[in-house]
Design a protein around this nucleic acid. Structure first.
Length: 769
DNA sequence: ATAGGGTTAG
């Protein structure tokens, strides 16, 4: 009995499947030409039912190909329309996400039948609008099992398990699809235990449900359970085989996948494509290509999988060859190429494809924006985000999060605030996903007050929200505030993790709370079960070192239960430098050189240290060493945002359009600073440059240029926010303190390590960084 | 023309 039913199901599914295959393989459609011919042939004859049927077919053909205008054109040309014609149009609009057009047609159609209502409901469900679906469902004059099933799966897909269950219990008539929808409710929401319980409670499940259950296990990577289901299925179809093969593929068990593939009696495009992508995911491009060549038929997805394979191993030339050879490209093909070029650093090629593609979707935009952001073209990334909004593309949560993290990276506060405004309009701000991105943006852009209110606005604070806020305060030098947040976190019943404690310890360090920091460090294992890692040790070395307790810091390093890393020695180096212990600094630097010979910052740091104590011979030695090891000093650069535009400066920069004004202003400032008692620390510059030249180079360090430009172009009363890619140099730090006093402005400088808030002649870092 | 399962891109 079971077998008979399964066979009947199998037949139906074969039929349905062939339709799906048609959808993904445009080559199988009748050509536009034959369709037009048919139209002309039809015209002179009297209009009968069979003619309407043909028109309807034309409409749904165009709709499936997303050619909405052509579909509408033929719809308007029809001599007579049945409700099926309307339904085809409505369903097509919904298939293409055009709820508005569907709704209009639905409202104006002369007589709606049951199918019209059902089409609308399922369309709403497909576009994830259960509320609208439910409204239609309540409104419709009569319902059949399709209406109930559509509603049920609507709730299932949107995670409303209880609602789904309620609908199921209320259904006046159920068929196997209803049962399967209930099963899918549990499976899609990861409730495998409940799914199994339901499955065991009934005997005559059809094949789709068996496959659904197995697919649930595959998605949860529970391969053993999936295999058990597979072995128990009374009658397997190709979807059963494809599901289990995909399961092995996605878990890296490519050999088992290959074995089943060879054993499978029912291979189709899906099976073959799964194998191609399986080889790709396991790094076997050549095997993938071999399989690809052997495929009896290929669709766009198969080509895309193969192209993605070349993309993943950075063989863009091969990817390009396939792209050119491909007979039918879809939007994924273009998106894959864009991603590929972006990831191999060929950003211009990526942009070229982006500009040339016939149609763009949110994935295309995201790929291009992320490509720019990852290659360091943050400005272009953000410009594109703005273009995207202008083009009327719907911005989703992840596009916002991506744009916000780009803002955070380059500290584009103004743009970040604009994004915040758009976010509020789109109604996205209260969740923790976007909320955390917003919080991080404000923290990294130096807007600590804004960060604080963004934090308070997150309705569901998760551990990331708390950690970001604590670390944010710490980096800005507001240690006490950070600790206050830590206390509220505990009061809210959130258990701190290791990242939390890094923030807490560095907050103690920045606030000079040595004893409290030690207490936290030594009790965190007992209190929260957190074992100290190297980041925690680094904080402690920093904490002790900042307080001048260099011996204790050394002792701590010696007693570490694992090998100290470069960052830990770096903390000791920083502390020794501040407290003038050249010998200790040298030792730390030597160790760091061994671990990270390519770390240019260390050479510069040590070289400056020698210069400070007048050891010019050692300075030269460092220079030689840098040359010998081929390490290049990363050029310092600073930037700031003025009216949504990023202005970048490097040492002695003469590219800025306002350079004359900036240099003149710096001269003016220099005089005033000297009158206040400022002395430029000439000793920091390599000694073989003559004195005047040295002073000149110091005077025009990138951060000074940026600060000067900020004072000139940002209205009084607003803080000047400058970013630097390296640590701020000692002379600049000193100079900016004077400047903040002379001009009476708040200057916030983000260097590669932390934030400095300069106000009234002093800095929030307490001259330790 | 409407309801359920498997392959590609961020």
């Amino acid at each position: 009995m079971l077998k008979l039913k399964a066979m009947r199901g199998r037949y139906r599914w074969r039929q349905l499947h062939s339709i799906k295959e048609l959808r993904t393989n445009p080559n199988s459609y009748p050509s536009k030409k034959t369709l037009t011919q048919r139209r002309h042939n039809d015209k002179p004859r009297p209009v009968g039912d069979s003619d309407i049927k043909q028109w309807n077919m034309v409409i749904s053909y165009y709709m499936r190909n997303s050619q909405l205008d052509s579909a509408l054109h033929f719809f308007n040309l029809m001599p007579r329309r049945s409700s099926v014609s309307y339904n085809a149009m409505i369903s097509g609009y919904l298939m293409n996400g055009r709820f508005d057009l569907a709704r209009n047609l639905f409202d104006e159609m002369p007589e709606r039948d049951l199918v019209s209502w059902n089409v609308m409901i399922s369309g709403c469900v497909r576009n994830n609008n259960v509320a609208a679906a439910r409204e239609l469902f309540e409104e419709m004059p009569e319902r059949d099992v399709v209406s109930w099933n559509a509603m049920l799966s609507g709730y299932a897909q949107n995670g409303c398990i209880d609602e789904a269950r309620k609908i199921f219990d209320r259904m006046p008539c159920k068929n196997s699809i209803s049962w399967n929808a209930l099963l899918a409710t549990y499976v899609q929401n990861g409730r495998m235990e409940e799914a199994c319980r339901l499955f065991e409670s009934k005997l005559d499940w059809d094949l789709v449900s068996w496959n659904c259950l197995m697919g649930g296990f595959v998605k949860k990577k529970m391969l053993v359970d999936a295999r058990r289901v597979f072995d128990r299925i009374p009658f397997r179809d190709k979807i059963s085989w494809n599901t289990i093969i995909t399961g092995y593929v996605q878990n890296g068990e490519i050999e088992e996948a290959r074995r089943l593939f060879n054993e499978s009696p029912v291979r189709d495009v899906f099976t073959w494509t799964a194998m191609v992508s399986g080889f790709v995911q396991n790094g076997l491009v050549d095997e993938a290509r071999e399989t690809f060549e052997q495929m009896p038929q290929k669709n766009a997805v198969s080509w895309n999988a193969m192209i993605a394979g070349y993309v993943q191993c950075k063989r863009m030339d091969m990817a390009r060859k396939l792209f050119d050879k491909m007979p039918f490209r879809d939007i994924t093909t273009w998106n894959t190429m864009i991603t590929g070029y972006a990831q191999s650093g060929e950003i211009a090629h990526a942009r070229d494809f982006f500009d040339r593609m016939p149609r763009r979707d949110p994935v295309s935009w995201a790929a291009m924006i992320a490509g720019y952001a990852q290659s360091g073209y943050s400005e272009e990334a953000l410009r594109l985000f703005v273009d995207m909004k202008r083009d009327g593309e719907r911005l989703n949560r992840s596009s916002f999060a991506c744009a916000l993290s780009t803002c955070a990276h380059i500290a584009a506060l103004e743009l970040g605030m604009q994004l915040h405004g758009w976010l509020v309009k789109a109604g996205y701000e209260s969740g923790s996903f976007v909320g955390n991105a917003l919080l991080l943006m404000y923290c990294k852009c130096g807007g600590i007050e804004e960060a604080c209110s963004a934090f308070e606005e997150i309705m569901e604070k998760d551990i990331v929200s708390w950690n970001t806020m604590i670390a944010g305060y710490a980096r800005h030098g507001f240690g006490k505030e950070a600790l206050k947040i830590f206390e509220s976190m505990k009061a809210a019943g959130v258990k701190p993790n290791d990242t939390t404690m890094v923030g807490v310890l560095s907050a103690c360090s920045h606030a000079g709370l040595v004893d409290r920091g030690m207490e936290y460090f030594y009790s965190m294992n007992q209190d929260y079960g957190i074992t100290a890692n190297s980041r925690h040790y680094t904080c402690m070395v920093d904490l002790l070192g900042r307080a001048g307790r260099l011996d204790e810091a050394q002792k701590l390093i010696r007693n570490m239960p694992f090998e100290p890393d470069a960052a830990t020695w770096g903390a000791l180096l920083g502390a020794s430098r501040i407290h003038g212990n050249t010998k200790l600094a040298e030792m730390a630097a030597e160790l760091i050189f061994e671990m990270e010979p390519e770390n240019a910052g260390m050479y510069v740091l040590l070289s400056n240290l020698y210069a400070a104590s007048g050891r010019w011979a050692d300075v030269s030695k460092m220079r030689l060493k840098m040359r010998d090891t081929g390490v290049k000093k990363v050029p310092g650069c600073s930037w700031l945002e003025v009216q949504n535009k990023i202005h970048t400066f490097s040492v002695g920069d003469s590219c800025h359009p306002d350079r004359d004004k900036i240099y003149a202003y710096l001269e003016e400032l220099d005089l005033k600073m000297k009158r206040e008692g400022y002395m430029s620390s000439i000793k920091l510059i390599l000694h073989d440059v003559d004195e005047e030249e040295k002073e000149h180079m110091l005077k025009y360090h990138s951060e000074k240029l940026a600060v000067a430009y900020g004072i000139l172009s940002i209205p009084a009363g607003r803080p000047i926010r400058v970013m630097k890619n390296l640590r701020v140099c000692e002379d600049c730090h000193n100079a900016i303190k004077y400047i903040s006093k002379i001009v009476g402005r708040l200057i916030i400088l983000r260097d590669s390590n932390r934030f400095h808030h300069f106000r009234e002649g002093s800095c929030s870092c307490g001259d330790y960084w």
